[in-house]
Design a protein around this nucleic acid. Sequence first.
DNA 1: ACGATATATCATTATGTTACGATATGTCAA
DNA 2: TTGACATATCGTAACATAATGATATATCGT
Lengths: 101, 101
Amino acid sequence: MSIRPLPVTFMNQMADVLKVMGHGYRLRIVEFLDLHGPTPAHVLLAALGGAQGLLSQHLAKLRQAQVIQAERRGKEVWYTLDTPAATTILNCMRKRQGALQ
Amino acid sequence: MSIRPLPVTFMNQMADVLKVMGHGYRLRIVEFLDLHGPTPAHVLLAALGGAQGLLSQHLAKLRQAQVIQAERRGKEVWYTLDTPAATTILNCMRKRQGALQ
DNA sequence: ACGATATATCATTATGTTACGATATGTCAA
DNA sequence: TTGACATATCGTAACATAATGATATATCGT
């Protein structure tokens, strides 16, 4: 039972997801959501720092790539991880921590 | 035993790896090496297509991020996957294929 | 030393990304 | 409806990346 190459279009989709996660700030957003579950943006802002507009832009990119989901609750917008792929990649990183540095 | 946030410097390193893999052509290079093992560049070129100089540039990026390793054997340069993280990410993608689309 | 093959690098252009500051929108409470 | 809070978007400058065509380097056989 040999492993076949994945379809090129699928590879390109996955490349987009990897690319979006391939940014320190966004990766920290993803990690925070993985550790703490659904979180409103202002809590992310307090935890991660930086300018409000910048956080919003990064959240938008993660949303576009369907890595996270947004849901408004009153004044707040709550963000949630939307793909188990993100958690899998994080866990892979956690396992490797120490081995790479 | 709760999971702690990964160190920021480590996160940034991993973000670089994800970013480098976040490109369709490079992702296909990584997949090919994962499926076929060590491979000389001209075989990759025949398999993946594109301009020779472009392949070389992408290989250089993957090398810089320590995703692959290069070893000259005579006229050829053989490339090998250098981090199990790449295989883990690929396997994650394989599991998810079909679920995303 | 020469030609052929394999790979890397360079210069350039086009395009995309990031961060910043400012401004706009949405929601609620008084 | 006004103010306060939460979030999103816009314009822009700095910077990074991608692809192309051309050229350079490396290795081998003759």
